[in-house]
Computed example of a mutant assay.
Amino acid sequence: MAVMTNDIRSRRLRSGLLVAVASAMSFGLSGPLARGLMDAGWTAAAAVAVRVLVAAAVLAPIAAIQLRGAPGLLRRNAALITAYGLLAVAGTQLAYFNAVRHMEVGVALLIEYTAPIAVVGWLWARHRERPGAATVAGGLIGILGLILVIDLRSGLAASWAGIAWALAAMIGAAAYFVLSAQGAGSLPGTVLAAGGLTVGGLTLLAAGAAGLVPLAAATNPVAFQGFTVAWWVPVLLLGTVTAAFAYVSGIAATRLLGSRLASFVALFEVLAALSFAWLLLGEAPRALQLLGGALILVGVVVVRRGEPAQISAAAAETAAPSR
């Protein structure tokens, strides 16, 4: 029995890590794509709204199939879906895209992804899940990496508006990891993603109609580093790759790994965003940022070493027969 449980834990961990990295890489592409749209005349709110609504349209048919035979599932999870849409989708992305308007993509994302600290603090305060020594050590190493990547000499102090927006995105990102773990075993991840994306997109449209956020789009060609594409190309990629796939895979990874470990693995998004910003926007990372990126990777590995008990418990629960 112990051998079977360990085997399940190992498979669950491997699957969770692979899915989490794929999700992080997909999310990392969103900032550079959105930056291109905004440089072509789109507002941040419009880029977010189109991104999440396209993703909701892609996921809606799958979610509808999963809801067959369970008419009360949406009603029972209405609060979770609404919170997910308002905090994890609309709030996080609007804050992040506004941060990108005031600072480099990589810097904005790195401030946002101090979110694992908030996740650890929340789980400790709310659920008494005290972090172990490895988790604390890995977190400190990862944050040191973040500080190096930010590189205060690069002019960060001059963009206080960007810092404020990025910190708001951090709060939303922490909510994303906490809420994504909810409903496991009862609410399919695609349903949570589709519902949350719909709520988030409609909320942004309503805010724009009320004049709370500026909504403006353009059909101008979108220029990136060395090439130009039609406006609908980044829109399609934002909706399908950086939203539909990224959110569904992110929910799956969080349910496999738990909120704490998933939030640290998601720091790979930082490296992906730096790479995509370099390729698409010409924002080449500095040597100090590369060193910080290496420390982030080390921090994730150390945190992973401190999380086996949580994964074991989740695997054992999965292995138990249902009633």
Score class of each variant (00 low, 15 high):
Ala24Ile: 03
Leu236Arg: 07
Val303Asp: 04
Val89Cys: 08
Thr5Asp: 15
Gln93Lys: 09
Gly185Val: 07
Ala83Gly: 14
Ile147Phe: 08
Ala88Lys: 01
Ala193Phe: 06
Ala20Val: 09
Pro234Trp: 03
Gly239Tyr: 00
Gly239Val: 03
Gly299Ala: 04
Ala78Gln: 12
Gln225Phe: 13
Ala244Ile: 06
Gln289Ile: 06
Ala294Phe: 02
Glu104Leu: 13
Ala313Met: 14
Gly282Lys: 02
Ala20Asp: 10
Gly145Met: 03
Val265Trp: 03
Gln66Gly: 12
Gly121Lys: 01
Phe227Met: 11
Arg130His: 14
Pro308His: 05
Thr5Cys: 09
Trp231His: 13
Ala262Tyr: 02
Gly106Ile: 02
Ala253Pro: 02
Gly16Tyr: 01
Leu280Asp: 09
Gly142His: 00
Leu94Ala: 08
Ala56Trp: 01
Ser249Val: 10
Leu74Ala: 11
Ala2Gly: 15
Val241Asn: 06
Pro214Leu: 05
Leu110Phe: 04
Tyr84Phe: 15
Ala118Met: 15
Leu94Asn: 09
Ser15Glu: 11
Ile117Trp: 05
Ala266Phe: 14
Ala161His: 10
Leu288Gly: 11
Gly306Leu: 06
Met1Val: 13
Gly91Cys: 09
Val120Asn: 01
Leu256Thr: 08
Ala125Ser: 13
Asn6Arg: 14
Leu295His: 04
Gly69Asp: 09
Gly185Thr: 08
Ala44His: 02
Leu280Gln: 06
Ala95Ile: 03
Leu53Pro: 05
Gln93Gly: 10
Gln310Tyr: 12
Leu290His: 07
Leu94Ser: 08
Thr219Val: 13
Glu129Gln: 15
Ala319Val: 10
Thr43Lys: 01
Ile150Met: 00
Leu279Gly: 07
Arg286Gly: 09
Leu167Met: 12
Val270Pro: 03
Phe276Ile: 06
Leu205Lys: 07
Leu205Cys: 10
Ala60Val: 11
Tyr176Met: 12
Leu256Gln: 11
Leu33Asn: 04
Leu148Trp: 00
Val301Glu: 11
Leu261Met: 12
Leu202Ile: 13
Ile117Asp: 05
Asp39His: 13
Leu144Ile: 05
Val178Cys: 03
Ala272Val: 06
Ala22Trp: 04
Ala194Tyr: 05
Ala79His: 11
Asp151Tyr: 00
Gly36Ala: 03
Gly121Thr: 07
Trp278Arg: 06
Tyr176Thr: 12
Ala316Ile: 09
Leu238Glu: 01
Gly41Leu: 03
Val54Leu: 14
Ile62Asn: 07
Gly200Met: 03
Gly91Leu: 05
Leu280Arg: 02
Ala194Ser: 14
Ala166Pro: 01
Ala169Gln: 02
Val270Ile: 15
Glu104Phe: 04
Gly106Val: 02
Trp124Val: 11
Tyr84Met: 14
